[in-house]
């Protein structure tokens, strides 16, 4: 029986996508005298509006409309005019169309551009021969440890801010320079919070309250503490995957009226760091070894929040 059900659903999808949708649109057009895009502007606001406009454009049979989702900023005005010509929209009868369409197109193509920019940074590996990279890394140290001097570039001290070994460069891995940019961005813009998180995640007392295992001489103080830097890099990965899977669309469409930029993406990362820290200590994991379990739980929580088209974080 489920097989027939599936067949029915795919048949319906086929006919809907190829015929019914266009008949419905035609009928509605005759009744209201407006095209689908105009009807969306009449009915929806915020992320829902942009999202529906995007779907309408993407599934359009018209090449001008389909390609509009990839428009560059400098060509957006011309693109809106082209759409109005294609759809026979009279600028005097519908004065707001031009403004609304432009705003939507900037958001839609801006999201794609943002992903391209983020991917570009992620793909750049940390390079010790690059002076800028090195400067940024040392800046991270001085932001987080203003009172302690780093004794050498290769040093066990890096573990104090949560890197794994004595040279942080290997920890950036799949996140590349983006991981470092994020760590510095958070530490620079939320220095007090960063210090608090760092001292809490290094706090021997707090790290000692729940002892999951009974073996001794085993550096009990590390029980609950998480490594600030590598957890930060893990959260960069989370922010990146959410952007890539388009899960950030509702949030960015609601939050940014025009083109979303790197700055907005970094802000979202900061939100994740702040919320994860709260989450971690509320959940009271019994050991740092369960990090990935809680990371996944947190990830699900964030994904649920982002599914709401009215999302605001």
């Amino acid at each position: 029986i489920p097989m027939f059900e599936n067949m029915f659903i795919s048949l319906w999808e086929f006919f809907y996508g190829n015929f019914f949708r266009y008949w419905m649109k035609w009928i509605l057009r005759q009744m209201t005298g407006k095209c689908e895009l105009q009807r969306i502007f009449d009915t929806y606001v915020g992320a829902q509006r942009t999202h529906r406009i995007e779907n309408s454009l993407t599934s359009s049979k018209n090449k001008v409309l389909r390609e509009a989702t990839h428009v560059t900023q400098s060509e957006v005005d011309k693109c809106v005019e082209d759409i109005m010509k294609e759809k026979n929209i009279n600028p005097e009868k519908d004065a707001s169309f031009k403004i609304c369409m432009k705003a939507c197109l900037l958001q839609i193509s801006g999201y794609k551009q943002l992903y391209a920019d983020v991917e570009n940074e992620r793909k750049k590996p940390y390079d010790s021969d690059n002076l800028q990279h090195e400067k940024l890394l040392l800046k991270l140290w001085s932001l987080l440890m203003p009172k302690n001097k780093l004794k050498a570039r290769i040093s066990k001290q890096w573990a104090d801010i949560g890197f794994q070994g004595d040279d942080p460069k290997t920890d950036f891995r799949g996140m590349g320079i983006l991981g470092l940019i994020h760590l510095v961005y958070f530490s620079e813009n939320y220095t007090a919070v960063a210090h608090q998180i760092l001292s809490r995640s290094n706090h021997p007392k707090l790290g000692n309250t729940k002892v999951g295992y009974s073996f001794e001489n085993c550096e009990v103080k590390y029980k609950m503490r998480y490594s600030y830097a590598i957890v930060g890099i893990n959260l960069t990965e989370m922010a990146y995957s959410l952007l890539k899977s388009e899960a950030l669309k509702f949030y960015l469409y609601n939050f940014v009226p025009g083109i979303p930029t790197m700055e907005h993406f970094h802000q979202f990362y900061c939100y994740l760091v702040y919320e994860f820290d709260k989450f971690w200590f509320e959940e009271e994991p019994e050991s740092i070894m369960y990090f990935n379990l809680y990371r996944e739980k947190f990830h699900e929580k964030i994904k649920r929040l982002l599914l709401d088209s009215n999302v605001a974080l």
Binding site: R122, Q164, I230, T236, M289, N292
Partner: peptide, 12 residues
């Protein structure tokens, strides 16, 4: 996919 691996905190 192995293109965006991050340091392992804990285990997988």
């Amino acid at each position: 996919d192995i293109s965006h691996i991050t340091p392992t905190q804990g285990f997988n």
